[in-house]
């Protein structure tokens, strides 16, 4: 029974930990399936987290904070898009530039606004996304097995967690069942053909990076106004890169990426709880090695030892109209 309880708690934590990864990985998928490399997830997430916490603090409303986060990340996406799509600059370099820029800028503006060493002031309850109790959760709480699963695991998360899990089928539907999605994937595979069909490759790619911005903005807002209660310098701590790894691990597809995010979230949640714990028979768990697992697994996958991750064909190549 205790094992069951620990398992439920761990899965519960996995859902909370994977939420920002899921949103950011989907953001990466939208951008990269259209042919634009998006290494800037980390920086955009930071920008989103900062805007959300700042605006939520001033307005007392997390939804306005969320909108501010999305506006910020759309802005950053457009800068990235301008560099990559219009200027045909190097997409890797543009992504790194945004990451570095946001790491400094969020702290700098934070200090200028609040003079608290780059932190934003702690948000009160009304300014944060609060846990939602699903209907009937209290009633079934004491039912064995199902009770804890429904009450602990499924109920009691904030709205962004549910949005993230809903976003996965939604992204799949948009990408594989709509004309927009078809074209989006086509500009990432064979932009020449799309162009011949009379559709603007440039416009299509811009629309894709804007979608990416919307999703990664939510991911940032989750960190500072739902899971946490303020912004902290570099609070993403590599989550953008883990999301990137999850996207690659999920082979640039929404559902496999979801599972990669859940796996990486689970490893993170488990590592957090194993810190300094001495397991009988094993000794102290080398937590760092658990934490490195997502990266190691991604490299192994990229190396083609467990399946193959094939990126979109036109990924990283700016489109030059042929005459």
């Amino acid at each position: 029974m205790e094992i069951f309880q620990i398992g439920v708690l761990l899965l519960d934590a996995t859902l909370r930990t994977s939420t920002p990864l899921i949103l950011a990985a989907l953001a990466g998928i939208f951008s990269e399936r259209s042919g634009t490399i998006n290494l800037a997830l980390e920086g955009m997430m930071l920008g989103g987290a900062f805007s959300a916490a700042t605006i939520a603090f001033y307005t007392g409303n997390p939804w306005i904070g969320l909108l501010a986060a999305i506006a910020t990340t759309i802005g950053l996406s457009l800068i990235h898009g301008f560099a990559c799509i219009t200027q045909r600059g190097n997409q890797v370099v543009s992504g790194m530039a945004i990451n570095i820029l946001m790491s400094g800028l969020t702290a700098l503006v934070g200090i200028a606004l609040f003079a608290q060493g780059g932190k934003t002031p702690a948000l009160d309850k009304a300014s944060r996304f609060q846990p939602i109790t699903l209907p009937g959760a209290e009633a079934v709480r004491d039912v064995p097995i199902l009770g804890p699963i429904y009450f602990e695991l499924l109920s009691g998360h904030n709205v962004l967690v549910y949005i993230a899990f809903f976003a996965v089928p939604a992204a799949w539907w948009v990408m594989y069942r709509t004309r927009f999605g078809l074209r989006l994937r086509a500009v990432g595979e064979n932009p020449g053909a799309v162009d011949t069909a009379g559709i603007s490759v440039v416009l299509m790619r811009y629309r894709a990076v804007v979608c990416s911005g919307v999703l990664v903005g939510m991911s940032g807002a989750y960190l500072s106004t739902a899971q946490g209660a303020s912004f902290l310098q570099d609070m993403t701590a590599g989550k953008g890169y883990i999301a990137l790894a999850a996207m690659v691990f999920g082979k640039w597809r929404p559902f496999p990426a979801l599972f990669a995010c859940l796996l990486f979230g689970f490893l993170d949640a488990a590592a957090t709880r194993l810190q300094g714990v001495i397991l009988p028979g094993i000794g102290e768990v080398p937590v760092q090695l658990v934490q490195a697992l997502p990266y190691v697994l991604t490299v192994i996958l990229l190396a083609g030892f467990i399946g193959r991750a094939t990126p979109p064909k036109a990924l990283g190549r700016a489109y030059v109209k042929e005459r």
Binding site: I79, F82, A83, C84, Q87, G89, N90, Q91, V93, S94, M96, A97, I98, N99, I100, L101, M102, S103, G104, L105, A107, L108, I111, A112, A115, G118, Q233
Partner: peptide, 21 residues
Amino acid sequence: TISNDMVVVIQGLVILFTGAM
């Protein structure tokens, strides 16, 4: 009011303008 994060900002902008753009 200006920490050495300013230097990180400059670094990011230099990469953006001399590299990507």
